[in-house]
Design a protein around this nucleic acid. Structure first.
Lengths: 139, 139
DNA sequence: ATCACTTTTAACGGAAAGTTTCACTTTTAC
DNA sequence: GTAAAAGTGAAACTTTCCGTTAAAAGTGAT
């Protein structure tokens, strides 16, 4: 079951903005796109979705750009995924009356396992892990 | 993230065959399709995939049909999903060099959580749960 | 006011994947 | 040999994905 690249881009964008968070400065779409190797015009659409969920905010005009709307420790992986894909894991079975209840509960188990895992990962942790592996490459 | 109906159909088909398992008799595609409300011609394709993974076997000709190739307790939910979709959860990020390692490990956590859950559910349990809820409706 | 710089919004289009149906072939029991 | 079943390939159709384009609108400096 392949996941589209869209959520990958979104996660990378949020990580990119997380690195910038403490500076308080806005990052231009162009720079964010280049820094993360994301097609700029596609990133635009993604950022707007992230903004509509208040994960990110923007400043227009000169010196404008994007910033996180909350601290990285308050943004979870699950939040990002839900913003981009709706439910993280949405089996067709659950919306289908023909599906036996016992199978539905199997699907629900899968769903809640994924939800819980995704919600337990926040971007502060990702960023710190990221810093460590980056150090490793320097040494 | 919507899942296609294909794996729903596959799971229902295997459940249908599980019910039949102890009788040792083959079930015609037509009957299986009608019993589970699955488009018959689509079910054909799904059964062939299940057969190629030795989850199911078939008998051709008159009096032919489909049977499980193993006992329901030896068939897991994960097995079915992998048969239909390849990897159960395959984030685009993991095949992408541009994606920072820290994000990749987040994706990997999601992946293994789902794998473990799916592999812990087998069809004997689903069938028994199914029998119980069916009894409830009778009483 | 005008200009340069930025985000915002809407629409378009090719490619790929998902779902379904159809026609034809092969195998088997009787 | 005939009828009943699975096997196979492919066509038709719909939807989603990925990205591009172009125009609009807000912001601050000159």
């Amino acid at each position: 079951m392949k996941l589209s690249v869209k959520s990958d881009y979104a996660a990378r964008a949020v990580l990119g903005l997380s690195r910038q968070y403490q500076s308080g400065k806005a990052l231009r779409i162009e720079d964010l796109a280049k820094g993360q190797n994301i097609p700029q015009n596609y990133l635009v659409q993604i950022l707007i979705e992230l903004k509509s969920q208040k994960i990110v905010k923007s400043i227009r005009g000169k010196e404008g750009g994007y910033l996180l709307n909350k601290a990285p420790e308050d943004i979870t992986f699950g939040e990002i995924l839900r913003c981009i894909h709706g439910d993280i894991f949405e089996p067709a079975a659950l919306g289908n009356n023909e599906c036996p209840q016992a199978l539905k509960s199997a699907w629900e188990k899968m769903q809640s396992c994924l939800d819980e895992t995704a919600d337990s990962i926040h971007f502060r942790a990702i960023m710190e892990e990221d810093n460590q592996t980056r150090e490793m490459y320097y040494i």
